[in-house]
């Protein structure tokens, strides 16, 4: 790609109108071309000027106090998460996040055989899928204790939303308790990064994501997803430390016999920045636009590793 081809497409790239391949070509060219890098900066600045059309409005006076009183303690400045290392991650829950929990593993001698585990799960009874709910202790710790629970309680003001979250937590807790033994098999492994998803808007949803950083395999498993139109698909996204969304793959019903169980087995996308969050979105079934996810069903956000 040269400058004549690149510059007319910068606005299209900024607004998400390019295919992932085109956007990647633009990004690569801008990285290596000073003139196009400057033009890209100017396009971004021009676009951000539109914010000035909104009038400043003072937020309610008590919001500042509520915010400051629920800040998590910073033991040290946050450090970027390495992309390919097993770490102990504890969810850093923003006060209004609908979801969240992330667990980490300890020591592992050999990679996880997800296919075997998946087969085990599907051979098992109706709760067999829960073998993939491997975030037991950390999930419970995050949701039931610490500032995260306080933050969730303090900001989900609407009673209906709180009930939905409570139901979801209760279901997750039951699930996790019954599968603690199976979970331990995985949580004893240092090469896994694990995440659990729940959603206030979909209380029946319980989903887990395991990322084996040795084999770079993602395993996502979910039950309780609401019915979706045929022209849409559930899609898993990973979010890096600068907020960029990267598509990880479409989440499909595991079988026609049991359309309530969804799963995804896929290689982790290669990316220059470490991923620090994951999201489940309901997207168009057409080819995805890079960084253009659809309706977000559930999203995790997590901060620095515990003890850092």
């Amino acid at each position: 790609m040269n400058c004549q081809e690149c510059q007319p497409l910068l606005i299209d790239s900024l607004l998400g109108d390019l295919s992932p391949e085109q956007a990647s070509e633009i990004a690569h060219h801008v990285e290596t071309c000073e003139a196009c890098a400057l033009e890209w900066q100017l396009v971004q600045r021009d676009f951000s000027q539109l914010a000035e059309t909104s009038e400043p409005v003072d937020p309610p006076t008590d919001l500042k106090a509520r915010l400051l009183s629920s800040l998590p303690v910073k033991s040290s400045p946050a450090k970027p998460l390495p992309a390919n290392e097993g770490l102990t991650i504890v969810a850093d829950v923003p006060p209004t996040a609908p979801v969240v929990a992330f667990g980490m593993s300890e020591a592992l001698d050999e990679p996880v055989d997800y296919n075997t585990l998946a087969s085990d799960a599907h051979r098992a009874d109706g709760a067999g899928w829960t073998k993939f709910a491997l975030l037991a202790a950390t999930l419970a710790g995050v949701l039931l204790g610490g500032w995260g629970a306080q933050a969730i309680r303090s900001t989900l003001a609407e009673a209906a939303a709180e009930r939905a979250v409570a139901q979801s937590r209760a279901q997750a807790a039951t699930t996790l308790a019954t599968t603690m033994q199976a979970s331990r098999r995985l949580t004893d492994q240092a090469t896994l990064r694990n995440a659990a998803f729940t959603s206030a808007e979909s209380p029946s949803l319980v989903a887990t994501l395991s990322w084996d950083v040795l084999s770079q395999q993602l395993h996502f498993h979910a039950v309780g997803l609401p019915a979706k139109p045929d022209d849409q698909t559930y899609r898993l996204w990973l979010i890096d430390d600068v907020g960029q969304w990267v598509e990880a793959g479409d989440i499909l019903a595991s079988s026609e016999d049991d359309p309530s169980v969804y799963r995804l087995l896929a290689p982790a996308p290669e990316h220059e920045h470490p991923f620090v969050a994951a999201a489940l979105a309901l997207d168009s079934a057409e080819s995805p636009d890079l960084d253009k996810h659809g309706r977000v069903i559930s999203q995790t956000q997590f901060g620095p590793a515990a003890g850092e």
């Binding site: 910073k74 400045p77 996040a97």
Partner: peptide
């Protein structure tokens, strides 16, 4: 207001 809280939480966590 919820979005504003998210923003300042993110600033708090990621200022470095």
């Amino acid at each position: 207001q919820a979005a504003l809280s998210d923003i300042f939480y993110e600033i708090w966590r990621r200022a470095d």
